[in-house]
């Protein structure tokens, strides 16, 4: 039985200390691309959260039940990306069929998720060097789920904060050549500096 502290550490560490976007540079493309409006940033984050948790479970299971027992861990890249891609297809299909409203909100972001580094990155760190790799199969799975959820929360947090900042930046008087992405990047850099300060809290 894994103590609740471990889950707490997993969630805080994956959400704040090792924030996917600012500290691990995963999922920077949607971070810069889909953060112009708060609404779309939240839609993207929600879709990412959903896919990240499920894909973490699936990739963890496939790795430990199929790849590892047969000694073919080296094909994990191709296996993981295809699992994530099929999962996204399934989710998209389900949303299309059952909820038009949801599709309107999330549908546009789902295809983008396949190429979101954060999903593959979190799945990879769960099996290789993350907290989850230190517990046995069952415990590792639980920690992996919590870690994935924490990472997705961290992603959502950053997306929300950043899109709010960007909406203000649009109205700010920025030198011509800094307009748009350059000033956003520098803003993100300052956010990363702030997150650096969270390093010692756990």
């Amino acid at each position: 039985m894994i103590s609740p502290t471990v889950f707490f550490v997993a969630i805080v560490s994956s959400m704040l200390i090792n924030n996917v976007v600012l500290m691990r540079f995963l999922g920077v493309c949607p971070f810069l691309g889909v953060s112009k409006k708060t609404e779309s940033a939240l839609g993207m984050s929600l879709a990412v959260m959903f896919v990240m948790v499920i894909s973490s479970i699936l990739t963890y299971l496939v790795y430990h039940l199929v790849l590892e027992p047969f000694g073919i861990e080296y094909i994990f890249i191709i296996a993981f990306i295809l699992i994530i891609a099929s999962l996204v297809q399934l989710v998209e299909m389900a949303i299309k069929k059952f909820s038009k409203k949801l599709y309107k909100g999330l549908g546009i972001y789902l295809p983008l998720i396949v190429t979101n580094c954060a999903i593959l990155g979190v799945a990879e760190s769960n099996i290789r060097d993350g907290l989850a790799s230190e517990y046995g199969f069952g415990g590792g799975l639980q920690v992996a789920i919590v870690t994935a959820f924490g990472a997705a929360l961290g992603f959502a947090l950053i997306m929300f904060a950043f899109s709010s900042i960007r909406e203000r930046l649009d109205h700010a008087n920025v030198p011509e050549s800094w307009k748009g992405v350059p000033v956003s990047l520098v803003t993100a850099g300052i956010m990363a500096l702030a997150f650096l300060g969270l390093g010692g809290i756990v």
Binding site: C29, P30, L32, G33, V34, K36, K37, E39, S40, A85, S86, Q89, L90, E92, M93, K96, K97, K100, Y103, K104, G107, I108, P111, L112, V114, T115
Partner: peptide, 27 residues
């Protein structure tokens, strides 16, 4: 899954392309 997904028609009438304009993702 890919083929199945393609078969299901998208229920959107109008997608706000604006939200997608900054996205540079070819895929």
């Amino acid at each position: 899954t890919y083929m199945l997904n393609k078969k299901v028609p998208a229920p959107y009438e109008k997608i706000d392309t604006e939200t997608c304009s900054a996205c540079t993702n070819y895929a």
